[in-house]
Design a protein around this nucleic acid. Structure first.
Lengths: 183, 183
DNA sequence: ACAAAAAGTCAACACTTGTTGACAAAAAAG
DNA sequence: CTTTTTTGTCAACAAGTGTTGACTTTTTGT
């Protein structure tokens, strides 16, 4: 492994940890390079700029495939990703958290919106297949993103205290209700 | 009404519209003053700075009282605030939207977190009163904030197409499930 | 060992940010 | 009318932003 590749990885990892928790505009290039122990100019050299580095963090970890599973499987997987106790490091790799903090961003918001629409909402709608599938999918995502928002961003106590299994079961129950509206 | 008071109001209104939809750090003082047709220096003169202007937008509209109502009333009121068709202007006065976009902010996040904890989660927990009241309150807020997030920030189609009454009924149903977990 | 390519360092750039102080215009008070 | 206070205008500031180009160091290939 060349030294270039190593610093590339250091940059992507530091960028992911910061971008995914603070949001694109709220993280400066010097924040990332300082955290990675690398010169700031290398971001533009290796990734063409700040935006390229952000997109590199998306390309590396993109478990969109899991979201095209059956709704029940998706629900179980998503619930599992929230069910462990509050862990900042794990939250830094949580796709839901990343989407929430970056959909707010004035520069990346549109891209994130399109990503969620095409990679999550649309496949989910097709899987559900019923007449009001779009609304069911939207409500299910509202539940999942809402829990992520309360845990990571609002840091509400009630979601970290109970046992992981209990929380996971509660999320699944809510998700089932969202899916079975009008059925 | 003196001219100063008039520009004060112009500033607060323009600031609310921008801060409540884009978030604190993503809005510049010149964005606000440009929208209000006022000189940028007056923000520091009248409100002590950007932060003071933001807090002024919070002081003006703060319907926290409604959130201390009975859970069922809160649920109905919150659902009603989401039930109308997608309306950017109305969203600019939606407290849920404002809390979501500003809890992400690195400068205002802590303040917003404390606000939600003390003004929403704690009173709600007390109203519920059961053993797992904190978790129920957190799940209910997750549903409400999740719907707000999907509508305004992710702009998911499924939440704007159906009739307002139908969406409102769905939110209430989900909220009831969140409140009745383990009961 | 020598030349070529890649990787890393440093200073500076143009730009935007929030804020300040000096000054001018307008309104209020005497 | 004159003075005083308020209100608004303008230019500039210090700090932080992403990015660039020239340079040195290190690695690679022959």
């Amino acid at each position: 492994m060349s030294k270039s590749s190593s610093t590339r990885e250091k940059l992507v990892e530091a960028a992911r940890a910061l971008f995914w928790t603070r949001g694109y505009s709220n993280v400066s290039v010097r924040d990332i390079t300082g955290s990675a122990g690398v010169d700031a100019a290398l971001v533009s050299r290796y990734f063409g700029g700040k935006q390229g580095l952000f997109e590199a963090t998306l390309a590396e970890i993109a478990p969109w495939e899991a979201l095209a599973a059956e709704p029940d499987d998706l629900l179980a997987k998503a619930a599992a990703s929230f069910a462990h106790p509050f862990d900042p490091e794990a939250d830094a790799t949580n796709v839901f958290t990343m989407l929430v903090v970056n959909v707010i961003d004035p520069e990346m918001g549109r891209m994130i919106r399109d990503l969620v629409q095409t990679k999550m909402a649309d496949p989910l709608t097709e899987r559900i297949g019923s007449a009001d599938a779009r609304e069911r999918a939207a409500l299910l995502l509202a539940v999942l993103f809402g829990v992520a928002l309360m845990r990571k961003n609002f840091q509400l106590g009630g979601l970290a205290d109970k046992s992981p299994e209990q929380l996971q079961a509660d999320i699944i129950r809510l998700g089932r209700v969202a899916l079975e509206i009008n059925s």
